[in-house]
Amino acid sequence: MSWVSDYEYTFLQRQTLRVLRICRHIPHHVAFVMDGNRRFAKSKDIDKIEGHSRGFEKLADCLNWCLEIGIREVTTFAFSIENFKRSTDEVEGLFNLAREKFSKLLEESDRLNEHGIRIRVIGSIELLPQDLQKLIATAMLRTERNDKLFLNIAFSYTSRDEITQAVETVLNHERHLEEIGDNEDRLLSQDINERLLEECLYTRHSSPPDLVFRTSGETRLSDFLMWQLSSSVLYFTNVLWPQITIWNFFASIFVYQRASCRLEAFRGKERIRSAKLAKISDFYSSRVQTFLQKLDIFRRKELIKLASN
């Protein structure tokens, strides 16, 4: 199964897609919590891993829908750090599925390049088996020049861990500077604010999600992008992830389009507040910007190291 499916649209689906695309704003960034794979497997009396596999097939359909409607960034919650609590068999099964899918991705990287899809894995990948780390790092590096659709896969991720990682990055930066013999460009205490922390998250180069789509009837966020979704429209549906159809997807886009008009004032205020904060805290000073550039370089080096292991 490919990462982007060859979904065949019916006439009605194609027309609905056009109507939605022409009339209102399409969300730039959609985040999916793909919940319900195991419940689906149980209901169909199939193996749990087969349920996860069907879930992946649906993700491939979903990516096709997103590309077609004009969504530019998709984030999916594939594996939480909390999921390590599951049985060893299931965790190992999930890792095998990930190995299979990332290997497939590397095989079909030409196709991804053709669609312009960039893969970014967000999370503590150091917690994963080494071979999987290598596959992930290679996939990220191989697609890093693409810019039509960004696919962020939250793997070994929780939001709390991400925020802690951001705090850790700030606290550790002096040590990193010392290691490379750089005694300049140290952050000052007043440089540290929510604007800086936001730039230290895994999603540093992403805009916040406009729409968060969660399946299976749960109405919680399960520690997913908690920092980023403060002005996102949350859409909860009862359908299990492997059972979602394009009509569920259209419904979420429609709900977003209706809700985004009402949220615009709040979002505007947030943008102004963030811009003011950046201004008063010297966010655009060379000191802070150099720190962020060094962070990018450091993260890329880490990826290269993992890919070449």
């Binding site: 925020i163 920092w227 403060s230 002005s231 909860f236 709040f266």
Partner: peptide, 11 residues
């Protein structure tokens, strides 16, 4: 009228 956390206690 819509579900949004409005930045409520992300932690």
């Amino acid at each position: 009228r819509q579900t949004c956390t409005y930045g409520l206690l992300p932690w």
